[in-house]
Amino acid sequence: MRYWIKFTKQDKQKYISHRDMHKAVGRVITRANLPVAYSQGFNPHQKISFSSPLELGVASKAEYLDLELTEELSNSDIVKKLNSHAPVGFMFIKAKALTVKPPKLMAWIELARYSLEINNDEGISETINEILNKEEIMVEKRSKRKFRLQNIRSFIHEIKFCDGKLDVLLQTGQRGNLKLSQFIEIFNELSHDSLDFSKFIKEEMYGNNLSQYITPFELLDQLKK
């Protein structure tokens, strides 16, 4: 049975790289004694996969993992077992059994929402408008030892400021990716204040279904219908 599981990666755990997190979560699953499925072959490994990598140093309230078990367990049981063996900073929020075959998490997720509490909001609306009114924002992208310039304006989907919070929706995943640190660089260049990277948190991730952006769990609900 396959499950999608939502979890957080907060506090000091934001300093763990994606690769190391993969290993760490794998060990949580082992310690929790979940009947995880193993791949066949010379060097068997646990059948788990993750949503697109979170940038090192950014905390998140919404990471997703795809887990295959050899037996069926209740959603709440899985969450309970994982949490009793998870290190502080990792919290498993919800698990959902897959009843139909969904797309791959990594491929499906396209957007990430981040938020940041701001102390000084002077001139912030101007900065937001300035960014949103641009047609072209060029950043350097590195791929296979080559540098090229890329227009990432379309990767910035939303910037809002309300209730003392900056709310940003950025493109993420395989079809284009804007790192939060790159966004902050762009923002800070145009603003009076400078945003602090370490105070951002990822709130949620979305993918597209029937030309609507929805969360992975919403997708599972829609697929069921």
């Binding site: 506090d11 000091k12 755990q13 300093y15 763990i16 790289s17 190391d20 760490a24 060990r27 090192l56 140093g57 290190p87 502080v88 900073g89």
Partner: peptide, 10 residues
């Protein structure tokens, strides 16, 4: 590798 300075391993 900031993870080696946090002191919050399992």
């Amino acid at each position: 590798s900031p993870a080696k300075y946090t002191g919050h391993e399992v």
